[in-house]
Amino acid sequence: MSLINARIVLASRPTGPVSPHNFRLESVELSPLAEGQVRVRNDYLSLDPYMRGRMNESKSYAASQPLDEVMIGGTVGEVIESRNDHFPVGCQVVGMGGWQQYFTVDAKERGVLQKVDTTHIPLSAYLGPVGMPGVTAWYGLHRIIEPKAGQTIVVSAASGAVGSVVGQLAKAAGCRAVGIAGGPDKCSYVTGELGFDACIDYREHPDARSLSQALKAACPQGIDGHFENVGGVILDAVLSRANAFSRVALCGMIAGYDGQPIPLAAPQLLLVNRMRVEGFIVSEHMEVWPQALKELGGLVATGRLKYRETIAQGLSAAPEAFIGLLKGQNFGKQLVKLHP
């Protein structure tokens, strides 16, 4: 009997904030496997802010998400059918399976699937601290910010999948880690569980001046490195407290994902402080992934790297969970559990 695959496609491009109406849930019958193909039952789907940019048709660092095709997204799951000896039935894998219950892929193409070992690392962690978010944190911190012991590193969206790893890695490097997050619960988690030295609730500081004063108190020696996930007022405040020769790893600008402008208030500070600001896309730096994943996997397996997950239940919950992610409603890594 043929399998029926539930999938979510992009039905229309958002104008402004994302709406559930931008997505469409479909059911399709799956064809028999061809030679070399593998069929994966996706157990978890990763929801990430970069998906918002891909929904637009405007020029970006990657091709736009095509209309009427399965939404892009990282997945982990189990091989349930195989015509490829390297991926036998029962092995667990990570790949870009998209917003769907089943993922059929030609596994002869190198890199489309990777086996994972869940002996000491939970399967879902391969979409978080031991996956793309973790490697993103590792690369931005170690290759752009290049922290040295005693320096002060600031991280926006500090309780999220990327920011939480950045701060813990900064602490391991002997730095003072200061987070910026939304709400007292997230800030308490950042300092109490993740071990940051301080965390600023940006909701209590709605303008750059107020946030700058809070940063002055939390960073008495100024800011040597900043990992930016948000932009806007937060970046303005950080620049006002940046030290000479400080570095900014520009990972995300979620403040502008709905199309609103996000101008810099004082770009002259980049020159005055001789700052290095570098945007990056971690998929363009595959050469670091083996080293980063080995280090991150070891930290998670031994409990030295902590993380939290928010898990929505069922594929149909993905659009609302994604919209909540863009509004900061998730706590830690946002996932969708696709099967009971």
Results as ranks from 00 to 15, higher is better:
3 L>V: 13
3 L>Y: 11
8 I>K: 01
8 I>P: 00
10 L>S: 02
14 P>W: 00
17 P>C: 11
17 P>E: 15
20 P>Q: 12
24 R>L: 13
24 R>K: 14
26 E>P: 04
28 V>C: 11
30 L>V: 08
30 L>P: 07
31 S>A: 15
31 S>Q: 14
37 Q>M: 12
37 Q>L: 08
38 V>A: 02
38 V>M: 00
43 D>E: 15
45 L>A: 11
54 R>I: 09
57 E>R: 14
59 K>Y: 14
60 S>N: 14
61 Y>I: 13
63 A>T: 12
65 Q>Y: 00
67 L>I: 10
69 E>A: 13
70 V>N: 01
70 V>D: 01
78 E>L: 00
81 E>I: 02
82 S>F: 07
83 R>D: 14
83 R>H: 12
84 N>T: 06
84 N>W: 05
86 H>C: 12
89 V>R: 05
90 G>H: 00
91 C>K: 01
93 V>N: 02
95 G>W: 10
95 G>R: 06
106 D>I: 05
109 E>S: 08
111 G>I: 10
113 L>H: 00
118 T>G: 01
119 T>S: 14
120 H>C: 02
122 P>I: 11
123 L>R: 01
125 A>P: 01
127 L>F: 03
128 G>Y: 03
129 P>I: 12
130 V>L: 06
131 G>V: 08
134 G>I: 03
135 V>N: 03
136 T>S: 08
136 T>W: 11
140 G>L: 10
140 G>P: 02
143 R>D: 09
143 R>S: 10
147 P>E: 08
147 P>F: 11
151 Q>L: 08
155 V>Q: 02
155 V>Y: 04
157 A>D: 02
158 A>N: 10
162 V>R: 01
163 G>W: 09
163 G>K: 12
167 G>I: 07
171 K>E: 08
173 A>Q: 09
175 C>R: 05
175 C>I: 06
181 A>H: 01
185 D>Q: 14
187 C>L: 13
188 S>F: 04
189 Y>M: 14
190 V>W: 09
190 V>T: 07
199 C>F: 05
201 D>N: 14
202 Y>H: 13
203 R>Q: 14
204 E>Y: 10
212 S>Q: 10
212 S>P: 00
213 Q>A: 15
217 A>T: 15
218 A>F: 09
223 I>Q: 01
226 H>F: 15
226 H>L: 06
226 H>V: 08
231 G>K: 13
231 G>Q: 10
240 S>E: 15
242 A>W: 02
246 S>T: 05
246 S>N: 04
247 R>K: 15
248 V>L: 14
249 A>D: 07
252 G>T: 06
253 M>T: 07
256 G>Y: 11
258 D>M: 03
264 L>R: 02
265 A>F: 03
268 Q>Y: 15
273 N>P: 01
278 E>F: 02
281 I>Q: 07
281 I>E: 08
285 H>W: 11
285 H>F: 07
289 W>V: 04
290 P>G: 06
296 L>I: 11
297 G>K: 00
297 G>E: 10
299 L>R: 12
299 L>N: 03
301 A>Q: 07
301 A>Y: 09
304 R>I: 11
307 Y>M: 11
307 Y>Q: 12
307 Y>C: 01
308 R>Y: 10
310 T>R: 03
314 G>R: 08
316 S>W: 01
316 S>L: 12
316 S>G: 04
317 A>C: 06
322 F>G: 04
324 G>Q: 03
326 L>W: 12
327 K>C: 06
328 G>E: 04
329 Q>W: 04
331 F>T: 02
332 G>M: 11
336 V>G: 01
337 K>W: 00
338 L>T: 06
